[in-house]
Amino acid sequence: MSIEPVVDTVDRTNMRISKSEVAIDIVAMHKWYSDFHVLRDINLRVMKGERIVIAGPSGSGKSTLIRCINRLEEHQKGKIIVDDIELTNDLKKIDEVRREVGMVFQHFNLFPHLTILQNLTLAPIWVRGIPKAEAEETAMKYLHRVKIPEQAAKFPGQLSGGQQQRVAIARSLCMNPKIMLFDEPTSALDPEMVKEVLEVMISLAEEGMTMICVTHEMGFARQVANRVIFMDQGQIIEQNEPEAFFSSPQHERTKLFLSQILH
């Protein structure tokens, strides 16, 4: 792993961080897996347009944290407010949040029994109630954006890992989300396919998408993120702008982590 830039230049004209609009507000949030205290007093406010990278060693709770944001995991204490909706046991509220928050998984999780096009149109048709023809048009638009329109009729099993992950991003975008969550989107990819996925993520950032990415791609973090958050043992122990984060990490644990992954 390195902190070499992913692309030559990043166009920052549309990257605007709102001063007043809060996208995600997490207040004094705790989570346990039975007895194990996996997230401890998490406080994080994400403004609209922010691009946040969460880093940290394995088992530090970073995936669990972003999975709490769309309630794939339940928190036991504290508050999570996404797009002005507080996450509680209310299933309607949860579905409302999930409609507005896209998620990309480490293992893509495409639906193998559906074609690429059906993967992209299923949720718009059945969740948003968009007519099929319109949903397909939107789907093709996003397939063009991730540069694989020619794969529309194939099944996920016939695509490479990098292509599958780009389809997964397009699938989320078809729901026109306000926030995108990325859970180690490049960790399961062969090295030569990492870049094509990161490029798509960078182009999303260039359009001003609010993003939270759990990733070890420090080059991406440095070029795209406006904040890097470092987690260890279920706590956020450091956050900073990328340049400062990489050049002068404050915490001992952060220094150790960076020295281990950057060489």
Partner: peptide, 12 residues
């Protein structure tokens, strides 16, 4: 992951 992906897309 299949259950999670379906949930994350907002399918009930």
């Amino acid at each position: 992951g299949q259950y999670e992906a379906a949930s994350a897309l907002g399918l009930n």
